[in-house]
Design a binder for these strands. Sequence first.
DNA 1: ATGAAAGCGCTAACAA
DNA 2: TTGTTAGCGCTTTCAT
Lengths: 335, 335
Amino acid sequence: MSNMQDIADKAGVSRATVSRVLSDHPSVKAATRKKVLHWVKELGYEPNLIAQSLAGNSTNIIGVIVPEIAYPFFSEIIEAIESQAFYEGYSVIICNTNRSLEKEKNILTGLNKRKVDGIIAVPVSTEFSLNSYRKLNIPVTMITKKVEGFHSIYISHYRGGELMAKHFLSVGFRKIGYIGPVKKSTSAIKFQGLRDYLLANGIELTDVIECDPPANMNATGVSENVKNYILVRGIQSEVLLANDDISACEAISALQMQGISVPHDIAVAGFDNSLLAREMNPKLTSLAQPLEMIGKKAVEVLLDQINYHTQPQMYEMESRVVIRESTVSWNVQQS
Amino acid sequence: MSNMQDIADKAGVSRATVSRVLSDHPSVKAATRKKVLHWVKELGYEPNLIAQSLAGNSTNIIGVIVPEIAYPFFSEIIEAIESQAFYEGYSVIICNTNRSLEKEKNILTGLNKRKVDGIIAVPVSTEFSLNSYRKLNIPVTMITKKVEGFHSIYISHYRGGELMAKHFLSVGFRKIGYIGPVKKSTSAIKFQGLRDYLLANGIELTDVIECDPPANMNATGVSENVKNYILVRGIQSEVLLANDDISACEAISALQMQGISVPHDIAVAGFDNSLLAREMNPKLTSLAQPLEMIGKKAVEVLLDQINYHTQPQMYEMESRVVIRESTVSWNVQQS
DNA sequence: ATGAAAGCGCTAACAA
DNA sequence: TTGTTAGCGCTTTCAT
């Protein structure tokens, strides 16, 4: 593997000049530049980014921290981040917190030692994680959650709940239920949006099936909860909004097992518009978060922060309802 | 941010000694070690990994190359890789080829310049990618495909096809069909396994719906193909094996639209045992590739290669059929 | 327009 | 057991 000195020797110039050529410094005679570039190509020279990082002081690496890489919602964001980062000449180190504060801390010190230029993160907790991030003293952009004091990119879950409510009403539903966390969790906010919008239209939620926020991809609590609810109280609603697509699928499964068919007997909508929503049977109406845009924007905001030290800012992204079989064929059958 | 010299000064020793303490070199007097560690803690010193990399010569970074990060199959492997890598003290840079040979090349030179210690890759092509990997001269472990000349970790698709065939027979199916690529593609091999096993049992495939291998997650060609096939020839089979879970979902959708209900009228099985299989309605019988094990093994094999320069070896992993509603309730109804 | 030289923060012979 | 010294490969002032 050749290094800068080799090029310098061959071209009969100093390393400094080679460096200038490679970084497009203006003050290099055309002839010299040509000579250098010739040997760069001839020797197949590739700069050593480690050395560059040590000498200059940017690694062109950004760290990405998520609770669960394989959760479709996150993996799609990761893909968008990687894509934009690659485009901007950055590499991406991904880290999985597994929702553990301790692991998150380890990850942060790791990234710090690696001298990453910045971090895009879904913090484990908006309460207990933040100090670790602050102490880092490197640019951080938070995603999917609104975090005071940090650049944050997220969608309004409240607005999402409202949009779903609006859709339900427009389809003609009047008895509406909800499945998911009701307090504390970020995702519970969509519950409020849903409820408030309906209340403003004189409608109260018919069923509220409270579930913990999804702990991870394999959590199957929802199905149990729905089943119990059905057995104990029965379901009055014409449509149910589930906290996310997985919950929606779980709910559908539980409903079917109790002999309630979706969307024939009851409609169900999800949240996230993940692969599941697209492929589920019936195909799920779901609130689409602009995941690609979140990822892309996150990189842009982070790079701005890195390069221009911008002040923390909130970016609320627009979401939209993607309408599919799980809520509309019900309507069709009614008409 | 303090550096090694700061520690050395405070502790009244040389940088070399500090270095020794930090790397657990045996020949350091206990008292000295204690003194140094005291100041390390006191100053909150954290070694600069960039400098370490430049001086030593390992970055403790491994590159991971996949065709599509957000494809559940890959994202689950990535998660497993990250987990094991983290455990071993390595960071993971992930890269998305998007199935483009050109992007793959760019990624490889990028990782090379970054001096990653090794690469775990799903090559874009087992035909045209390999040279780029070879020229790299750094350890590479291939996953999900058997690639001559490289450490490879994969499951036998052939065996997978056989296992499915066996399952079908045991459930009592005799008319069996297949949906997916028939030639060329890696995944077409499962077709052969299925067919051969059945032939050995005196059974010929009833329907073969040829489809291109899935180009990416959003490809919906399968649904179209199935629909056309139904319209043109009709389906005779009692059960269909789809090339992957997504195809299975697509097929189910197409079947339902033609008034054929799954699993009531026909059974369907998938391949990969992804989230989709678990959540789909009906829940999908699917061939589970041990994704977590593939990821973990990949890291282990790569590290062996890095540390002991092991010779290329093939690791064929065991897969298993996960039986769910989509194939068994059919049987129940028959009995 | 170019070169000389001093680092960036660490590791690892080699000496002592 | 510890210190000295010479790099690792590059960038970047400061001269010239």
